[in-house]
Simulated assay, not measured.
Amino acid sequence: MTDQTPAPLTNQQLTDMAAREAAATPGPWCTDSWEIYQGTEYEPGISEWIGETCRGRIEGLAQDKADAAFVAAARTDVPALLAEIRRLKDGTEPRRLEDGSTHTIQALTDAGESCVQHACTAAREEDRLRQEQYTLRAAVEGVLDEVRYMADDELIGGEQAARLTRMLRDALGLDKPFAAVAGEAGR
C-alpha cells in the first residue's frame, strides 16, 4: 500500500462535512458489537438503532465489530475534528514554537510582514546612502583634481598637495570599500 497524503481540505469540503454531520442523528453513538445505536451505552429496548456493519459471515465478525466501533465513534470524532480543523485554519489559536514561545498564526504573519517592510525600508535607505556616498566621493575627487591642478600650476607645493590629498582620502575613506566605511560610521 502506498502512502497517499490527501490534498488539504477546502473550506467548501469542510462546510459539506459539517452539513452532513449536522443532518445525522444526534450523538453520541455506541455499539453492542456490529450494530450501532444512539446513546453512550447500548440499552436494549431503549437505545435507538442507527445501523449495522454485519456482513453475515462468522469469519468477518471481528472486522464487523471494529467497523461498527469506528462508525459509532465517528459521530463524536467528526465534529471534534471539524472544530479542530477550523480552529487551526482561522489562525487565532496560540501555537507553541520550537523556542517555547507561543504566538497565533496571525501574529506571526503580521510580524513577518512587518519584518519585510522594515527590510525594504532598510534596503531603500542603504541604496540612498550608497548613492549619497558615491556623489560625495565624486565631489571630493573633483576637489582632489583641483589640488593636483594647483600643484601643477605651482600654486601650492607638490608635497603640500600630496599631504592634502592623503588627508582628504583618509578622512573620507575613499580608498576603502563602501561596507568598511559604513561600518566605521556606525561605531
Rank of each mutant, 00 (worst) to 15 (best):
R55P: 06
V116H: 03
D127C: 09
N11M: 14
G186D: 10
E159C: 02
T102G: 09
E125M: 12
L14P: 01
A22Y: 10
L155G: 12
A182C: 05
T135C: 07
G39Q: 01
D175R: 02
R130Q: 04
E113L: 15
E132Q: 11
S114Q: 15
R87C: 09
E113T: 15
L164K: 03
A18H: 13
Q117H: 15
R128C: 05
R75C: 04
R86I: 03
T135M: 07
E43R: 05
M150L: 14
D145P: 02
I156T: 02
G56V: 03
I36Q: 00
G60R: 06
Q160C: 13
A107I: 06
G45D: 07
V181P: 02
A62S: 15
Q133K: 13
P177A: 05
R20G: 08
D16V: 12
Q106W: 15
A72N: 05
T2E: 11
A161C: 03
T92L: 14
R163P: 04
G39K: 00
A23L: 06
Q133T: 08
Y134W: 10
P6I: 03
F70I: 10
P28E: 02
D67G: 02
G51D: 01
D16I: 07
A123C: 10
E126D: 14
A122Q: 09
D90V: 03
R148A: 08
A74S: 14
D32T: 02
W29D: 00
E154N: 08
A83G: 08
G56M: 03
F70R: 09
D99Q: 06
L61Q: 15
R86A: 13
T76H: 01
T5H: 05
R55Y: 11
A138S: 12
E98H: 08
F70N: 06
G39W: 03
D90P: 01
M1Y: 07
V78Y: 00
D77V: 14
A151R: 01
K65I: 13
R86C: 00
L88Q: 11
D110H: 09
D153P: 11
T104V: 11
I36D: 00
W34V: 02
L164F: 09
